[in-house]
Design a protein around this nucleic acid. Structure first.
Lengths: 111, 111
DNA sequence: TTGACATGCAGGTAAATACCTGCATATTGG
DNA sequence: CCAATATGCAGGTATTTACCTGCATGTCAA
């Protein structure tokens, strides 16, 4: 009776935190960064960042490999695409896209 | 330094719970349901469901209107599309779609 | 009007979450 | 080898979350 899909759960929960979204953006800009690099300028202790990265890994949004004493992090966009297939495409209509484009156009004037 | 986007936060957090995803699915099947209808078969107290619906509303995924003593709930897919624009499209590549289709095809055999 | 029905409001608890600190381990470079 | 560097491990705390129960309010229909 419950859509207790653990996959969707882990991905949405992973994305539900600004620090983790920032980490994904950083990895998008440059893939394969070390823990230390990713921690820099995050404004929190290393161990906190580590935990965030573990959550991203559990959601399969990030995968890692070790190079010597360093841990390299790589982004994996597939879960995002699967969310799209399940949670966006389902609600997608021609009208929706048009509405979105119109909104963007209107916002473009204001900003 | 932090992508503390309250909009993304509210939407992802709203979607990060199986009960709330189930509610969205139910509203997709039949829009405009009352609180009582949505509570049925959820396996939790009415007030708990109410709180979940409030969270969906805060994320702008659901809007409501009152008809007499009833409260009607309507789904709003726009935030989902905005997530797509920000978090899927960005990582989208030709290769990705191909990979996804391939995977689906392979899974189709097994199941 | 009044009783039944739909929903709102006000707490209260257990578990999960997002941080932290302190110490341990493993790797590299000189 | 050994000191500096990168990361892992083991807790500990405050806040948030997901539930609950009990009672109040508002609306409909006979």
């Amino acid at each position: 009776m419950n859509d207790a899909n653990p996959k969707a759960d882990s991905v949405f929960k992973a994305l539900g935190d600004p620090t983790r979204r920032a980490l994904l953006d950083r990895l998008y800009e440059r893939n394969g960064q070390t823990l230390g690099e990713l921690c820099a300028d995050l404004g929190m202790a290393r161990q906190s960042a580590t935990q965030h990265l573990e959550i991203l890994q559990a959601a399969n949004l990030v995968s890692t490999t070790k190079r010597g004493r360093e841990k390299l992090h790589f982004i994996n966009p597939v879960p995002l695409y699967e969310i799209y297939e399940r949670w966006v495409r389902k609600f997608e209509t021609q009208r929706l896209r048009l509405l979105h484009d119109l909104k963007k156009q209107l916002e473009g004037d204001g900003k």
